[in-house]
Design a protein around this nucleic acid. Structure first.
Lengths: 246, 246
DNA sequence: CGGAGCCTTGAGTCGTTTCAAAGCAAGTGG
DNA sequence: CCACTTGCTTTGAAACGACTCAAGGCTCCG
């Protein structure tokens, strides 16, 4: 009975965690979960804090519990590109990577992480193929998503880019909440600033701003605040995103 | 003795294969290799043939023995983006993917593949964690590379893009041959047409062509044929690729 | 020799960037 | 409580770079 209470104490928070229901941790047995919980430490970070630094060796592997983290790369002359946007249940850290990380991971909002010492997590993986399989699946999902952005960055124009981005965020947000929204009248939390949206889409702040104004003028969206917008016409947004001139 | 000769017959070609020395197959024991060889079938394809079709379910997993294969995605209106370029030792096919593939895989040159029925390869993986680990590592490498291209597509201009592409090809080609070239006077095989380079870099044919001319005029490269160029000044190319205005 | 396919070059257009200024919201100190 | 700073966003005007359209050049091959 004593052990049972210890188990429930350790893993209690896990039951609330998005990673337990839809992330790496889903599918873990109670025993596995308990073991991993022994390695884990929660960490609270403020917006702007960096978890991983480009060109530095990182020994962290973490699961995001709440908040948004951006992965960025910068060119020698300072130009910046966001190469990934992570939210609750997403993983952070380069497993099995030798040498320095190629990304900077920076908190966009206040964030709570579930952190593991990377080496101990990697060791644990060696005996748990199911978990490693899950990580392989996630890596392939990330790759697929990165390639989608290649299409957007390489072949779409500014309005298509912004519309695509908003739709992507909307979908991400809806699957996270698992709430079957009606096709219209959704509200969207925008964690990124205009500058950051530009850094994501390969545009300047001004262009992003202009496109938002255009979308507003077209009746597709309304700007509640700079970080919260109402999606009035999803279909119009979709048409703009793919310029399907039907 | 009979079994030994069967083994050597089955796996004989593997010893010449780039995947054996640097791809998925390196690290496999003789027994593992033999087993996999039992599943494998070689397949010869001509330039232009498609191995996987976007939006179709694919049941192939393959290793490229020779040739170049491009992964592309097309938008509803026909715009095309190359999202990956595969060469000898690279893997082809979406393991564990449910549903249709998101890429089209098309041979750029004549190609020889080492093909596996996907389900049988997946089954084999379940009992061979070392191999699955290797696939995880490769997936993460692909992800890393895709993100590098995000930076290039999102933040670099036309000349930087073309220079970056040439340097990337050069490096790919040199590590493939494992030949420690001198820093200058290398020769580069260009499997892609101008149009395809454009589809890779998010540019038009004309822009690619103009940039090549500019690089030639700057003395960085010489065009032997349209598909073979001499790299005269790698450093100049590097400076152009990152615009490091030193 | 003549055609087909790809590559190059030129001229003009259009879209995004650049540079500059003004608008707006939140927070601070008098 | 109001003036003031600060940071982000929006808007405008001009410059620039990549695209579009059109023509001409080069190579390979029948």
């Amino acid at each position: 009975m004593a052990t049972v209470s210890v188990v429930s104490k350790l893993t209690a928070r896990c039951e609330m965690c998005p990673s337990r229901s839809s992330g790496v941790c889903c599918g873990l047995s109670d025993g596995e979960l308990e073991h991993l919980c022994g390695l884990m430490r929660h960490r609270r970070l403020q917006a702007g804090e960096q978890v991983i630094h480009q060109d530095d060796v990182s020994d962290v592997f973490a699961i995001i519990i709440s908040g948004t983290v951006k992965l960025t790369r910068v060119l020698p002359d300072g130009r910046e590109q966001i190469v990934g946007l992570l939210g609750p249940a997403d993983c952070l850290g380069d497993l099995f990577l030798e040498g320095a990380s190629h990304n900077t991971a920076e908190c966009v909002t206040n964030t709570v992480l579930c952190c593991f010492p990377r080496d101990r997590f990697e060791t644990y993986l060696r005996d748990h193929q199911d978990l490693e399989r899950r990580l392989l699946t996630l890596a392939m999902r990330d790759l697929d998503e990165a390639r989608d952005w290649l299409v957007t960055l390489g072949r779409k124009n500014a309005s298509e880019k912004v519309a695509t981005f908003l739709l992507w965020l909307l979908e991400k947000q809806q699957t996270a909440k698992a709430s079957p929204f009606a096709a219209s009248a959704a509200t969207l939390e925008l964690p990124l600033s205009r500058q950051e949206i530009g850094d994501f889409l390969g545009l300047t702040v001004e262009t992003v701003s202009r496109q938002m104004t255009k979308l507003r003028a077209a009746g597709a969206i309304r700007l509640n605040t700079n970080h919260q917008i109402a999606i009035d016409d999803v279909d119009k947004l979709r048409r703009i995103a793919e310029q399907s001139s039907v």
